[in-house]
Design a protein around this nucleic acid. Structure first.
Lengths: 226, 226
DNA sequence: ATGCCAAATAATATCGATATTCTATGACCT
DNA sequence: AGGTCATAGAATATCGATATTATTTGGCAT
């Protein structure tokens, strides 16, 4: 039959892509614990597909540093550690500053629109809706950098963002940021960016990251001491 | 049959790994041209294995930015462009400086040994033996950074190095560096590093990269004008 | 009892075949 | 003649089965 079943375009066409997104999500939100063995057979039954797309998705996740491949003994989720967390945070600060400066110096009208819209959406989303909020939060931060003409740098920032978000989820609901006004921090960053004030924007952005970082780190050490 | 064929242990055990290394090499040295379609069937016959390891190797190369995956239309080698080249060079300068400073501040005795040895081997290798020399050249540069306690940063540097080396191969034998003494440049960098003089080492390293970069860029524009 | 070796078990890695999807060719209509 | 649509061909993506390789279990000797 020649009828093209333009089915639901919403659902990703390739099984590999579906598997990639599903497994990635499970790792990020902690549904799959750090260091957990990823058995093909188990994932097959969960995702209802053959082994090939699973393996391909896992291979993609290896390069995202979310999954480790063990010689000939399959896959497992990446381990976490305080030193890894500190490394991610430090790298993020360096690379995002670089990207933000490039982005601001090349920023155009379309960039400004994207930024304002993503900021608005993030502020409107209830914090209770964790996954959705995190998605919008990431979109805002990536849009800050999006005018930067360096795709590789953006890819690195994206990866590092995901690696970091994992620690936030693992810290879990303990995070209430009671003493901080996260909304205001974002708004200040956006305003500095819109003003093309690179120095201020970078300072605010890095403070934003480092504060959250210090908060999470404290949380981990508390956990470990318990 | 229960006979264990402990074949040659020297050859990589997994077909995926062999495919990965073989295809990567072909891309780096330009045997597979930029933008070229990578047909599974063709690679299957060349590498004499099934489609699965090929696909997995290609997927690994996607994350190295050496291969692009097109929605549902297979794989092709990454395109090259002057802007991509400039981006790689710029990123490399930033990240390697960061890594080199961290490396020097954490450098120990074993690091120094590795560095001296790899420098020695590189200097002894005849330049005519291109692939072997490039291997040793990479080893030297990576050893410079190897005391840095940031695995992710090292991974990025490694990736960027490979992306850059591809341009060198593509420029090909036109490169004779007539006006430069590459050997001396390396030796000077090593000496500054061994002295733990981070400022000098960084300056020399970045000059080294930027000079080669300017050289290659000139080569490309000449090519394009022909 | 403890440590080591061998068989059994489980999981991975790989292959060959099939179904789906893209691409190119050529007929048909305007 | 030019463009569009259907068909044929090629290539990919995916599945199910098999061979290989790691891991565990249980027996044996010390």
């Amino acid at each position: 039959m020649a009828i093209k079943m333009h089915i639901d375009p919403a659902q990703e066409p390739s099984a590999t892509q579906r598997a990639y997104l599903a497994i990635r999500r499970m790792i990020l939100i902690g549904e799959l614990a750090p260091g957990e063995k990823l058995k093909i057979e188990k994932l097959r039954t969960i995702l209802e597909m053959g082994g090939s797309p699973i393996r391909e998705a896992l291979t993609l996740l290896v390069s995202d540093l979310l999954v480790e491949r063990l010689d000939q003994r399959g896959f497992r989720t990446a381990e976490i550690s305080p030193s890894n967390f500190a490394e991610i945070l430090n790298l993020r600060c360096h690379l995002e500053e670089m990207a933000l400066r490039e982005s601001l110096s090349a920023a155009d009208h379309a960039w400004e629109d994207r930024l304002v819209i993503s900021h608005h959406r993030m502020m409107r989303e209830p914090r209770a809706n964790v996954e959705r909020f995190e998605e919008l939060h990431k979109a805002f931060h990536m849009n800050l950098l999006s005018a930067c003409h360096s795709p590789v740098l953006l890819k690195f920032c994206n990866q590092l963002y995901d690696l970091n978000i994992r620690y936030r989820y693992l810290a879990g609901r303990a995070l209430n940021y009671s003493s901080r006004d996260i909304g205001k921090e974002h708004t200040d960053i956006m305003n500095a960016a819109v003003d093309r004030d690179a120095d201020t924007a970078c300072r605010l952005l890095l403070d934003h990251y480092r504060n959250t970082g210090a908060f999470l780190e404290k949380h981990f050490t508390t956990e470990a001491a318990e």
